[in-house]
Nucleic acid binder design. Structure first.
Ligand SMILES: [Mn+2]
Ligand SMILES: [Mn+2]
Ligand SMILES: [Zn+2]
Ligand SMILES: [Zn+2]
Lengths: 125, 125
DNA sequence: TAAATTAACAGTAATAATTCTCATTATTGA
DNA sequence: TCAATAATGAGAATTATTACTGTTAATTTA
């Protein structure tokens, strides 16, 4: 656990947003001005492999990261791309799913999408 | 509806897989050897905007496309990346969701992941 | 402690999916 | 027919991400 890795983890746990690698890079630079983007990517990968953070493979162009390890659902704005937690639990749990497709199921992603309050307000009619 | 666009749509409707843009490019080249990858990307975007196909923003690196417009669930192999239809309907429907997060909800993605039969068999123990 | 080994680093180059540019070709419709 | 419009092919540009290359810091061992 290097200083760089600790700062990345702390900054990610501090926010309730789901920042991209580059956004985490900007956050970390406030504390470690000489940190490199490559280090941020490398450590996000390591932390994700160690199970200390979650890499969100939500829709959209860039990967996002979440310091909240509890299983929860996300909602993404189709206009600006921001991702929030969504306060609903899916009624479906993994053991309930009848697996007749031959896959060995390991997880699932439930992601809602729509317009966030800001984008809804800014909408041109 | 140009020849290029029609071939892309027909090829996509022909298969039950969820090909990437490059895979569709290879399929289209069989009929139009001089078609360009840029044209494939452009027409997939147009067809998706027109609602004639669906662009799948599933997890993973590349976008995939689906000629099946009915609402259904997907499963993705975490080893080889292939995407299949998953024969389960989520118990949750959009109107049921209480929207107290301020978003205007437009849709959702439910995607399971795991190992496909081939990858499960090939697994090194 | 001092040398050797290891791990992570910063900076930068490479990769790959996608988008953009632009000259050319096809299509439309008065 | 023929001008206007739209789409194309080829390839360059963009961009998120990954890989590489010395360098530095930390850890282990003699
Ligand atoms: Mn979250
Ligand atoms: Mn499908
Ligand atoms: Zn928004
Ligand atoms: Zn597989």
């Amino acid at each position: 656990m290097t200083r760089q890795r600790r700062v990345i983890l702390e900054e990610l746990r501090k926010v309730r947003s789901h920042p991209t690698a580059d956004e985490i890079y900007q956050m970390a630079r406030k504390h470690l001005p000489r940190i490199s983007l490559g280090t941020v990517y490398r450590n996000l990968e390591v932390l994700s492999d160690q199970g200390l953070i979650k890499k969100l493979d939500v829709s959209g162009d860039r990967s996002r990261f979440d310091g909240d390890l509890t299983e929860h659902v996300h909602i993404r704005c189709i206009v600006c791309g921001r991702v929030d937690d969504f306060p609903v639990r899916p009624a479906v749990t993994l053991p309930e799913i009848n697996n007749d497709c031959g896959y060995e199921i390991g997880g699932f992603v439930l992601e809602f999408s729509g317009q966030c309050p800001q984008c809804k307000k800014a909408e041109v009619c």
